[in-house]
Simulated assay, not measured.
Amino acid sequence: MDIIELFCIFFGAALVVYYGAKLLLFSRMFFPKLWFPLPKTFFASLGEWAVVTGGSEGIGRAYAFALAERGMNVVIMSRTKVRLDQVAKEIGDTTGQTVKVIVSDFTKENVFSEIEAQLKDLNIGVLVNNVGILPNVIPNNFLDSAELDQEITNVINCNVKTMAKMCKIILPGMVNRGKGVILNISSGVISITFPLYTLYAASKVFVELFSQGLQAEYKDKGIIIQTVAPFGVSTRLAAYQKTNIVTLSPQDFVKSSLQYLKAGDKTHGSVCHTVLGWLLQSVPLQVFYTESMLQRVQDVIKIKIAHKASMTESSATI
């Protein structure tokens, strides 16, 4: 047996071990309760309060409810006071926890000094950076947006700046206490480069890289910082698509995603979304970037939104 043959055998065995280990690690995602168990008192032990941006609807509202059900008081933040007050009452009536409301439009420039003042004396154990905007529900080319300058400002302020600023406000207290959790909500679209949602997808890539950097810096301080990157969740950003095996309700998604809190610095939050992310990364990008494929994506989403709108209109007239 010559040296080349020995090298080939060694290299082949190394590949088998490497991919076998990756497969084993991936298989853990199917059994989160077994591999990543959390004590029932875990969240309440982190601190008295949780803060959720974009907490008046969708995923943010579901996180606020879930954390209150786990024994935490909750601060919910968005720009619509009426909706915030309604959610606060629902959470308080259902869970018995205290809910604090902060009205803030995160697309604006100077909102954080007031937020910091209102959060100053709270023992905050969990921060959920959920707020975000999708500038164009119907996908389009970057230059086709009617108000592109304003869209750029809004996306950067809401999707990028807000997350960094909220971490700046809340992270020091976590460091001082030596415990805390920060969940930064990204999107499954960052699994690949995603044309037609270019601005939105790029902002969510920032969420992931920022979160991974912070986790590396503060993991030894006892703090968990995790990117949560869902695919389909039936929210306003997704035009309230009908739930199915891929498109989850906000409540089901949040319940599932919290089970992956100790699964690493990034999670897709559910088994089906984890598999979908793996499949997308396995498909050659050239398949997505053909003009015919991009046009088909636009057409399919337009049809779904139009159908949803017609159903809503029909229901309203009954």
Rank of each mutant, 00 (worst) to 15 (best):
I3E: 14
I4L: 13
E5L: 08
E5Q: 10
F10H: 07
F11H: 06
A13V: 09
A14L: 11
V17L: 13
Y19G: 05
L23T: 09
F26E: 02
F30W: 10
F30R: 06
F30C: 12
F31R: 06
F31S: 06
P32I: 11
W35N: 15
P37V: 00
T41A: 06
F43L: 11
E48Q: 10
E48W: 00
E48D: 04
A50S: 14
A50M: 04
G54T: 05
G58K: 06
G58E: 08
G60Q: 07
A62D: 02
G71Q: 06
N73Q: 01
V75I: 09
V82N: 12
R83Y: 03
Q86N: 08
A88L: 00
I91H: 03
I91M: 03
T98N: 11
V99M: 04
V99H: 04
V99C: 07
V99G: 08
K100N: 05
K100W: 03
I102F: 02
S104Q: 05
F106N: 07
K108L: 15
D121L: 02
L122Q: 06
N123E: 09
I124Q: 10
L127Q: 12
V128G: 11
N130A: 10
N130P: 09
L134R: 08
V137F: 06
N140C: 08
L148V: 09
I152C: 13
I152H: 03
T153S: 12
V155H: 07
N157M: 11
K161S: 14
C167W: 03
I169T: 08
I170M: 10
L171D: 05
M174P: 11
M174F: 11
G178Y: 03
L183G: 07
N184M: 01
I185M: 13
S186L: 02
S187N: 00
G188R: 04
P195H: 02
P195N: 02
Y197D: 01
Y200G: 07
A201D: 08
S203I: 12
S211V: 01
S211M: 02
L214N: 08
E217T: 10
D220P: 05
I225G: 10
V228N: 01
F231P: 03
V233M: 05
L237Q: 08
L237F: 00
A238L: 03
K242N: 11
K242C: 05
T243V: 13
I245P: 00
P250M: 11
L258H: 01
Q259R: 12
Y260V: 07
Y260L: 09
D265R: 03
K266W: 01
G269W: 09
V275R: 00
Q286T: 10
S292N: 02
A309W: 04
S310H: 14
E313F: 12
E313T: 12
E313S: 15
S314R: 14
A316E: 12
